[in-house]
Every structure is written in C-alpha cells, then in structure tokens.
Amino acid sequence: MNAFTYIIAGGDYIRAGAASRRLKERLEAAGAAPDSVRRAVIAACEAEMNVVVHARGGRMEARLAPGRIDVEVADAGPGIADVPLAMQEGYSTAPPEARALGFGAGMGLPSIRRAADAFAIDSAPGRGTRLRFTVYLGARCPAAAGEGVRFRGTRIMLSQRRESMAPRRPGQGGPCRLPSGPPRGSAGSDAPGG
C-alpha cells in the first residue's frame, strides 16, 4: 500500500512531528535519495506544525508513486484570509505559546514552497487550509521537461527547484515565486522565476 494517512492533533505539541517522522520512515524504506527525503521531511514537518499551531486538527495524506511522493495536508483551522501575504517570509499569526517553542517566525509556508518540487495551497476564512506538495525522489526532476502532476484531480505545475537550500535574502525573488495576481485565497508554484 503506497497511500497512507496520518491524523494530526491541533495544539498537541507533545506528539507534533509524529506524522513527518512516519513519512520519513516510509521514504527511507522506499530507498528515496537522502536529499529528497530531507526536502520532503522539511515540507511535511512545516505543514504538520502549521496544523498543530493553528488548527483544531487535520490530516496528512501521502501517496508514494514511482519516483515521487505527493502529500496533502488539510486542516479544520480558521483558514487564511490573505494567502499571498501568508506566503511572505516573516508574516505569522502564531500565538505566543507557539512562538515560545520556536514557531511563528513566518517561515513555514515559504519553507514548504522552497523544499518541494511543486506546491499549491487553498485556503479561505472558515474553510480551513489545504496544501499539497510533491517531492521527486531521485535525481531527475520532470520540471525541466515542463511536466505537471495531477493529484486528487488538481494539476500542479512544477516549479524549478532551487539548487541550494540556503535562505533567500529578503526581497530576493526565486524560482518558486508566486504567480502574479493569483486568485485570492489560493496560490500555486507554477511560475518559474529568475
């Protein structure tokens, strides 16, 4: 079985990270390249922590396909009123107790976008948040061939993943930049930039 679901409890800082750890174990068992495992774990952990910090609960669904893993994290949280703003590094609405634990730096969503080969988010106030990302598990990245992936009926265009995981300077653009003028409440990493 190459599809699996993990339940994430909102506000549970004791078990936070458990879903990402299991995802990591799956990827390692599947023989994924270490860099791919690393990127998938970074994205999964950030997404999981977002649920823990902001939502009453949620779930992580992962599908392991030949050469890639598709992950969807959905929550029953308050939703995000301004997704492009939330995608900006440094923007956060995390409560003080989360900040005391090292969260709330406003780096979660940008980190997911940076770590993944494809990324999409859909959120609105009162509707919760659903984000999806794909990480390719080997050396070949179909982004170069202009391919897209289809996950749960939604086509995700691939961004050109940055070669380095080093942080961007404030204001610096990058290949995972949001497309200009996305519909309010949704965003995808389908606009390779320079």
């Binding site: 970074i42 950030e46 090292g102 969260f103 730096a105 780096m107 979660g108 980190s111 995981m165």
Partner: peptide, 18 residues
C-alpha cells in the same frame, strides 16, 4: 531559535546551539 531555521540548516553532522 527558530524551528524553521533549524529544520532547514540541520543535518546529520550538525551541532545545534539554541
């Protein structure tokens, strides 16, 4: 002191100071 930074910069040969 930020979990996101630690995640991004940590590796199997890294000492984290925090």
């Amino acid at each position: 002191d930020r979990i996101s930074d630690l995640l991004t910069h940590a590796s199997h040969t890294t000492l984290l100071v925090t």
